[in-house]
């Protein structure tokens, strides 16, 4: 076993309470980040669901030849933002209206002439379901001479945009705040360890240990605590997630947990917090020992 690992294990063994405290504080900090992360992940998923309804409707002038429409559809489908283009002719439009607008069913049935125009229903690729892209595509579609009018529910897409930005922003701010708290806590526990080991450190100095050598075990110690804290946080998050899922009576059966790459990121984050806290604290306090 290398000297570094041996010294690190020694420091764990000598201060089991302090070590446990460090690990649990990292775990709880990351757990809090994790809870917000879960909310963010699920919120994003919900928003993604809603955003499939982002759609541009281009109403066509009566009497447009079918070939022109087919060609234009192909053109529009070739736009980089566009996922699909569906042609809805006048009869289909009427059928849909009768199904969806039950209140007007009778009014529509009594009609002699179909008042509804044919349209192209344009859906956008996932990454383009925002107000700016929708408006840009709508403007291009308006350029076709046989297009009478274009609608894409600009207002609600803008609201969706704002919600998306807000969710991302709040998640980031809260995440960073808790990460900062975790770094400070790690710093404090490392500081306590440094003070507790002041005698040992001064003896190491005395016999000619370099600062790098002295720092090594502290850094490994911090990284290890971060790693364990990260793993513990994942367990806690999973437990909280299961608890919530089992007790939730809402129709949210498709609640999502983190993907493996997010979990890996979380652990890496824990290690970074542990290392960062140790680095700052060891650098500052070693000088005073």
């Amino acid at each position: 076993m290398s000297l570094l690992t041996r010294e690190t294990i020694r420091s764990f063994r000598r201060a089991p309470m302090l070590s446990a405290l460090s690990i649990t504080t990292i775990a709880f900090s990351l757990f809090t980040v994790g809870l917000f992360g879960l909310v963010a992940v699920n919120m994003r998923e919900a928003l993604r669901g809603i955003s499939t309804r982002v759609q541009i409707e281009a109403f066509l002038l009566r009497g447009t030849p079918p070939e022109t429409i087919t060609l234009a559809s192909q053109d529009i489908a070739a736009f980089p933002e566009v996922e699909a283009v569906v042609y809805v002719d006048e009869d289909q439009a009427l059928q849909r209206a009768q199904q969806e607008l039950v209140e007007f069913k009778d009014a529509y049935r009594d009609l002699q002439v179909n008042p509804l125009p044919a349209s192209l229903q344009v859906t956008l690729k996932e990454e383009y379901r925002d107000a700016a892209s929708a408006a840009a595509v709508a403007r291009r579609i308006e350029g076709f001479s046989f297009v009478d009018d274009v609608r894409f529910g600009q207002e609600w897409i803008e609201r969706l945009d704002r919600l998306r930005n807000l969710a991302g922003f709040v998640g980031l701010v809260i995440g960073l705040a808790f990460a900062a708290v975790a770094v400070v806590i790690i710093g404090v526990t490392i500081r306590m360890t440094v003070l507790q080991r002041a005698r040992e450190i001064s003896i190491m100095r005395l016999v000619g240990a370099t600062d790098a050598f002295i720092r090594g075990p502290f850094l490994l110690d911090g990284a290890l605590k971060g790693l364990l804290g990260g793993l513990l946080a994942i367990l806690l998050s999973r437990a909280a997630f299961e608890l919530f899922r089992r007790n939730s009576t809402t129709g949210l059966h498709t609640l999502l947990f983190f993907e493996p790459k997010h979990l890996a990121l979380g652990i890496l984050f824990g290690v970074a917090i542990g290392l960062g806290g140790s680095l700052v604290s060891v650098g500052r306090h070693l000088r005073n020992v």
Binding site: R199, I203, M204, L206, V207, G208, A209, F213
Partner: peptide, 30 residues
């Protein structure tokens, strides 16, 4: 420091290490 040996009134030994380990420590550290 590696060219100096230093001895104190209060010994300054690490209490959780044996005599051997205390001495070995000075070698490991360097």
């Amino acid at each position: 420091r590696r060219r100096l040996g230093i001895v104190f009134q209060d010994f300054r030994l690490l209490q959780d290490r044996t005599a051997e380990e205390n001495v070995a420590f000075a070698l490991e550290v360097t």
